[in-house]
Design a protein around this nucleic acid. Structure first.
Lengths: 144, 144
DNA sequence: CTTGACATTCACATCTATGTGAGGGTTTGA
DNA sequence: TCAAACCCTCACATAGATGTGAATGTCAAG
């Protein structure tokens, strides 16, 4: 697949896909004419990269951890230098911190939304439309 | 408390505290001499801001959601315009997405580390020191 | 053969979160 | 009274993720 299709399928601009490559996050092969040629797996990979970036992970780190996440069964223990291990443990802990922060704050938002909804339902019972937007109080993850 | 103490207590540089103020995230009072004067509560608040920033939340959004997270019991339903509600629901969903992404990837890292640890323990059983760093396979959150 | 859609590289622009320094007040303690 | 350690504002600098545009090459269809 060429860059245009991957761009459509992932929502990442062409520019961005080239940027990820420049940062060493993806390494597409090249067609004889010089066009980038992306394997199917890159779609998922790009989505994963975008997710991590959006969650505050810089490309520098993503580049380091991606190889360890790539083949779940046959891990390259060769890559496992003590520094790599330490880095991974550190990043794992930072991610845990981020998760906790996000969960706490997201639950607070959910709580606020629930309160507002309840207040509105109590205040105006006859507006003709039920104010519940369909999605009830979601599974709240408070066990984290 | 003045900016220096808050800086020490939060780990945020003075410059950064002024920046957060410029962005409307915190609004300290001023002493007669013009120095910023921070209430105790700002310590937690700044840590919360830093956590959200680190988790990929931009200041623009943090500024919007912070007031809703401030007083849990007496919510200002006044602020609850439909746009605000929609924004909060949207952010809540984005946060859920980030949480899922982080959890998935963190679990993958944990899995990799566990594999490496097992491989090393199996390979060198008599190095004299146990390679378990103390923290076993952590509570993995795979129910998210 | 030309046109349009796609690709390439290179480079400059932008926004956000920060650092850093200049130039200048205030407070505190020797 | 002087120095050290605070504080202020203003402004320029930087790094990372992205947008945008210029100048050019490739390929498929009319």
């Amino acid at each position: 697949m060429r860059i245009g299709e991957l761009s459509q399928r992932t929502g990442a601009s062409r520019r961005l896909l080239r940027y990820y490559e420049e940062q060493g996050l993806i390494v597409p092969t090249r067609s004889p004419n010089g066009y980038r040629d992306y394997d199917e797996r890159y779609a998922d990979r790009v989505l994963q990269i975008r997710g991590l970036l959006d969650a505050g992970m810089p490309t520098r780190i993503i580049k380091q951890i991606l190889p360890c996440l790539r083949s779940p069964q046959d891990i390259h223990v060769a890559d496992a230098t003590p520094e790599t291990i330490a880095m991974l443990e550190h990043e794992r802990d930072r991610m845990t911190g981020r998760i906790q922060c996000l969960v706490r704050n997201r639950n607070a938002i959910s709580g606020y939304l629930d309160s507002v909804r309840r207040a509105q339902e109590g205040a105006a019972e006859d507006t003709g439309f039920p104010s519940s937007g369909g999605r009830g109080p979601d599974a709240v993850l408070d066990h984290v």
